[in-house]
Design a protein around this nucleic acid. Structure first.
Length: 214
DNA sequence: CAACCGATCACCT
DNA sequence: GGTGATCGGTTGC
């Protein structure tokens, strides 16, 4: 896979997210998640989005917004293009992007990215040796999975829940380098019990960094 | 205020 | 392929 041409990086505007999350999810595949660390040494981390899931605002019992607005999920009901980060199983963070105009919930969960920049930093953050990530199976351990990618990019609820994604100077943003997936596959969502039959998981077909095979 | 439980992961067989 | 760890948000008493 080709590295992005940084000169041509274009940050996705807020309007991109102000739509049905099923549309946003499909168009997010192939885009680049960029994380810049501004504390201490300047460091840039990035990866190509290859797997996402949609959680609808209404009629989706698996969504955090299913029972209405609470203190925890209020970002989902706020303006589009903001990070919704939650803590799960006492161990992991998950990163979502709020979609739809303000007042409507609906979001996209990031499930896997293919790492591009800052792999050494990611390995440290994940507690994996530099040697281990020389192989492709090793690289998969960095960012294949929603909890893993958050740990690899240093994404926590405290720092990023509610953070805007659409500003060029956001520490977390989405860039478009022009790459487009050839095929997109739809499957059922992973790890849920309610509304599990809905085909709301989208993956770049054939990509080796997708978190689970079907 | 106690109990329940999950949009996961690592490690085991 | 199966399962326990771990903890904050939510709900019910």
């Amino acid at each position: 896979m080709v590295k992005p041409i940084l000169r041509k990086e274009r940050v996705l505007p807020q309007g991109f997210y102000a739509r049905d999350p099923r549309i946003v999810a499909r168009e997010l595949l192939g885009k680049i998640l960029v994380r810049t660390l501004t504390h201490g040494v300047q460091q840039r981390l990035s990866g190509r989005i290859v797997e996402v899931e949609v959680y609808l605002g209404e009629g989706d019992l698996a969504a955090h917004s299913a029972a209405g607005k609470t203190e925890r999920n209020q970002v989902l009901f706020g303006p589009p293009g903001h990070a919704y980060v939650y803590f799960i199983y006492g161990a992991h963070y998950c990163l979502n992007f709020s979609c739809m105009p303000e007042g409507n919930a609906g979001c996209v969960l990031l499930r896997s990215i293919e790492p591009i920049e800052g792999l050494d930093w990611m390995a440290k953050a994940r507690g994996i040796s530099a040697e281990r990530i020389s192989s492709e199976t090793g690289k998969r351990l960095l960012t294949a999975g929603p909890g893993r990618l958050c740990q690899a990019l240093g994404i926590t609820r405290k720092q990023f829940n509610g953070a805007p994604l659409f500003r060029p100077d956001s520490d977390l943003r989405i860039a478009d380098d022009g790459w487009r997936p050839r095929d997109i596959a739809e499957t059922e969502r992973i790890g849920i019990t309610k509304s599990s039959h809905l085909p709301l998981r989208y993956v770049v077909a054939g990509n080796r960094f997708v978190s689970k095979q079907r």
